[in-house]
Amino acid sequence: MIDLERAYGLMTLARRLDERMWGLARAGKAHFAVPCAGHEAIGAGYALALGAGHDFVAPHYRDLSAMLALGVSPREVMASFFARPRDPSSRGRQPYAHWGSKRLRILTLGGPQPNHVTHGVGIAWGSRLLGEDSVTWIAFGDGGAQKGEVHEAMNFAAVHRLPCVFCVENNLYAQSVPARLQHAVTSLSQRAAGYGMPGVAVDGMDVEQVHAAAKDAIDRARAGGGPTLIEASCYRFRANTSNDDDSRYRPADEAARWRARDPVRLLAGRLGARRARIQDESAEAVAADAAAWAEAQPWDDPASALEHTYAG
């Protein structure tokens, strides 16, 4: 069973950090914000089903709640947002939300989506070759799911029954392109049948549903049952990034309908208003501290850009 208190703490913290980053980006204090609002239940749901530091995660870029669950600190998140040297994923080399930490077993995420899906399959295969029972969680968006590379990755993982889980976070849009122009199947989980693996569709706004499906798939993978494809449906509450204008492609009433099912408020309702409020206030303070701390961090020496192209 998922620890709802813990899940709520992660989700509300992710939301507060997200709102702060959006405002700071709009104020010109940082280059780039990638909202996670609407995806919090998915990240928290799967990350709490994994063994942090043991299992591997090839994350979706909207998985801020998962990153917090796995051990990335709020200050580190903000250092990444402000592109400062204390950014653990890239030392400020990559824009925000290109996660990565070898220590936490979070794969380094590049820009083109979803190039990390094949990496996740390689990691899973490597774990088997090394005799470790770690599982690899591979998350990506509905946009990324349309690329041929995902087919190659899922097919290989299924053929070799590799210990991994594929999770499509379907928020109905690849930036502006709607689901009806992306795929003809009603649920992307139906594609699992084509690879000979189980396919599961869950409500990605409900952290308990996500966690239950994740746990089931992770247990099966760890036991040698091979991969699972999970489709978690959700809706992003903001534009694609701080450089996007979603009013050009999404009807306002659609967003309003989904906001009525806000994953953070849904869980607050289950937790009770008083317990939720305590966590909200704490999250707000942590987010404010993280932003102030990160913005005050020094820049790197420009010569350091020449490091790390090759070893040594």
């Binding site: 094949t118 996740g120 390689g122 899973a124 090394l130 590379e149 190659e152």
Partner: peptide, 28 residues
Amino acid sequence: AGRVVDTPMAELGIVGIAVGLAMRGLRP
């Protein structure tokens, strides 16, 4: 056959999966 693997005909997948193996600490 565990260390010499015949893959499907998918070059992007072969290299991408090999990248993952290398990140995991193997020498593909």
